[in-house]
């Protein structure tokens, strides 16, 4: 029942939307009724899906890069406070700089002929920080008793990292991954907007194109696809989280 509730809310909103737009005769270029959006989805679907696939490829690549890069940097930080103190301010600078502001630079450096490279870099910058900060926090949140045991049994640095710190960091790391996956998608779309030109093939460019041509139902259809993609990405990570943590973390179902 509780699973059906969001669906029910959605249906009610759609029904209200459809009837009120028709009753008040709102122009289609302001707010199209859901029926028209569905129609656009049918006719422009294949083209939009192609664009979505391009966006999704870059999103996944950016997420993977930020996950590996963030984790690697966090491991480095945990090994040495000195490295952390020297590098962390720059990571923060990257995080607080709006990508819209640095997009032109990145495009000039790598994206003049390859827009997708600029988009990839920009999205990676956006998605990077949650992984870095959550992984650093997780790697440090080791049970002090277990840390003592590892010292007692003279564990090597690798053993401590592999058998103690990484497993301890897993819940925080996965929470970071969830935030980061969403940001990777947002980052990709925003970067496509600001870096995109005629040769951009992602979904953002289709939205810009639709807006320019006043094809508002098509624009809404693209937005819908984008939301569904975000939801799907989130669901995938939640599934992975559940599978990895159900045995030992509270709130992830019963132990096997």
């Amino acid at each position: 029942m509780s699973r059906l509730l969001p669906l029910l809310v959605g249906l009610i909103v759609l029904a209200l939307w459809e009837t009120s737009v028709r009753l008040m005769q709102v122009p289609v270029f302001v707010l199209p009724p859901p029926s028209l959006i569905a129609e656009a989805l049918m006719t422009d679907g294949p083209q939009l899906l192609d664009a979505l696939l391009e966006t999704l490829k870059l999103t996944v690549a950016a997420f993977a890069a930020s996950f590996l890069g963030g984790l690697a940097l966090a491991v480095l930080f945990v090994q040495s406070r000195l490295i952390e103190r020297s590098l962390l301010p720059y990571a923060v600078v990257l995080q607080v700089t709006p990508i819209v502001a640095i997009a032109p630079l990145i495009v000039i450096w790598v994206g003049v002929d390859h827009v997708e490279r600029a988009v990839f870099i920009l999205a990676t910058i956006v998605a990077f920080f949650p992984i870095l900060s959550n992984a650093s926090f997780g790697l440090r949140s080791v049970d002090p008793g277990l840390a003592d045991l590892f010292r007692l049994y003279r564990a090597t640095g690798w053993q401590r990292l592999w058998l103690l710190q990484l497993p301890s960091a897993l819940p925080a790391l996965l929470a970071g991954a969830r935030i980061s996956a969403g940001l990777a998608l947002i980052g990709t779309v925003v970067a496509e907007f600001v870096a995109g030109s005629g040769e951009a093939t992602g979904l953002a460019w289709r939205i810009v194109e639709s807006a320019n041509r006043l094809e508002i139902p098509r624009m809404f259809a693209a937005l819908l696809l984008l939301s569904l993609t975000g939801l799907a990405l989130n669901a995938v990570i939640v599934q992975i989280e559940h599978r990895l943590l159900r045995r030992w973390h509270s709130g992830h179902g019963e132990a096997a």
């Binding site: 049970d143 590892f150 049994y153 564990a155 058998l163 030992w248």
Partner: peptide, 20 residues
Amino acid sequence: DATLMPWADVENNVYLPLRL
């Protein structure tokens, strides 16, 4: 506190000192 590794089953928890 028992200070076990919550991500490992009993056998792997007991294996730890030998594994190290």
